[in-house]
Amino acid sequence: MDFNLMIEIAPLLVQAAWVTVDISARALFFGFFIASALVVLRTSRIRPVRWLARAYISVVRGTPYFVQLLLIFYGGPAIGLRLDPFTCGVVVGAFNIGAYMSEAIRGAIESVDSGQNEASRSLGFGRLTTLQYIILPQAAGLMIRSVGVLAIILVKNSSLVSIISVVELTYQAQRLIGSTYKPLEVFTLSALMYIVIIYAVMGIVEFLYRRATRYTFL
């Protein structure tokens, strides 16, 4: 194991790792809004809207993220959509994770006992206020854990934007393997960085989860 080499290439990889974090964070952020919108649309009273939302979720979850990425990046111009690689990565990531997240949110909300909804409504709370004060606080824990799992998948998926030439961690790793002919060293360091990112995400998720479920220890 050539440690000198590893020290040499480390800064390059760290820089690229930040790009990974950047792309993933943005995709997660926007994905959350897309997911929330989908959750609302999915329960709309207007049937075509409901159907469209479900169809969207079904298609996005039923096809590979990689193909979606290529479709939007290379196929986009044909429908007037010209995105630069980084933005494309964020947008496709957001729309992709948004579909999964909407199911996670829905699942968490449905996991709350229906009696809670009944008690709240019988007091006179409306749909939105019931959601706000009673349902969401109880669904939060499960939601946070589920979204955490998706966030980790998002980080790993971000490696695919290397194919459309975004200089993130995997792109840099591949480049360095090619230029240094030392795959083991490059892989070890890159793998390490992914692991650090992922464990950081898990740590944040755990922290948020504990905060959201504080009432269970009281």
């Binding site: 490696s159 695919l160 290397s162 995997t170 790793a173 795959p183 892989f187 992914y194």
Partner: peptide, 21 residues
Amino acid sequence: WLFMTTPLLLQLYFLYFGIGE
């Protein structure tokens, strides 16, 4: 643990360029 926490693409590059060497 390793195969679950690192991206597939990275693993493939490693195997391809590493073992392929």
